[in-house]
Design a binder for these strands. Structure first.
Length: 271
DNA sequence: ATGGCTTCATAGTGAAGA
């Protein structure tokens, strides 16, 4: 499909879109890997989470040199989200409307004709904790807002670190994790509510290897033993899901020196 | 075994992540 051009496309851009997400666990530390990954994979859009840096530190010129524009919403130490894209982003929005929050967890922009929403959902720490309640409230506010956003932008992708493994097959050891944060029934119900808005998990639209995960603990040699969770997702509205030709997890960066604990996920769209 | 590792922070008796 690469290199296909449509008559209607006056900018001469291909109709294909590669849209990716990666929790980098500090953009400062991971920038060389991010630039390398962009160079190798050439996505049209890369959403980043846990950039962990204030906006004035954001490596905009490095990304520009790599051929990407970027919008970002960061803070010191924690959280932080960004969208890097090859074309001009429009209608940029920071945070969840109506949800007062110091934590930088959402940024949205229109790239070409697609509404891109980059999220870093709260971790929740432990079931029943204050942070767990905050996670559920954040997800509820996200879902309520998405309902309107989908009316404004029918071609919409919601991607990022959801901090939810939707099903037992997304968990390396479902018995050990049962009832834990990231897999608890209320979190999974919140994920299904998002799906019920008409957003489809692009990864599950295709045949996938068993035991496919996007996050592995740094400890216990968890990556080598594939003790992981699938918690990073790319959800597509119906018009985009129809044109999705692939969704893959790229484990290669997790094998490198000083990796993020998350792997990138990428979806490919074709008209 | 509530640990293990990594980051950012500060110099802790660390905090948080997932």
């Amino acid at each position: 499909m690469v290199g296909r051009f449509s008559v209607a496309n006056t900018k001469g851009l291909p109709d294909d879109m590669k849209i990716a997400t990666w929790n980098v666990n500090s953009l400062k530390v991971r920038l060389p890997q991010v630039l390398n990954w962009l160079d190798t994979n050439q996505p049209d859009v890369l959403c980043l989470q846990e950039t962990k840096q204030e906006d004035r530190q954001f490596p905009l010129s490095e990304l520009n040199q790599a051929g990407y524009q970027a919008v970002f919403s960061g803070q010191k130490t924690y959280n932080g989200v960004a969208i890097a894209c090859k074309t001009e982003p429009a209608n940029v929005m920071h945070g969840l409307p109506g949800f007062a929050d110091e934590q930088k967890r959402l940024i949205a922009a229109t790239v070409r004709d697609i509404r891109v929403i980059c999220i870093y959902a709260p971790n929740g720490q432990s079931v029943g904790s204050d942070k767990y309640q905050y996670k559920l409230a954040w997800l509820a506010a996200l879902t309520a807002w998405l309902k309107e956003e989908l009316l404004r932008y029918p071609r919409l992708v919601l991607l990022g670190d959801y901090n939810i493994a939707p099903e037992d097959r997304d968990v390396h050891d479902p018995q050990a994790w049962a009832g834990n944060v990231l897999v608890s029934e209320l979190e999974r119900a919140a994920f299904r509510e998002i799906e019920q808005l008409g957003l489809q998990d692009s990864f599950r639209r295709f045949e996938q290897p068993e035991k496919s995960y996007t996050w592995w603990d740094y400890r216990m040699m968890a990556f080598r033993r594939n003790m992981g969770l699938r918690i990073d997702h790319i959800l597509l509205s119906a018009p985009l899901a129809k044109s999705c030709t692939a969704c893959t997890i790229d484990r290669a960066p997790r094998k490198q020196e000083r990796p993020s604990d998350h792997a990138p996920v990428m979806a490919e769209l074709a008209d």
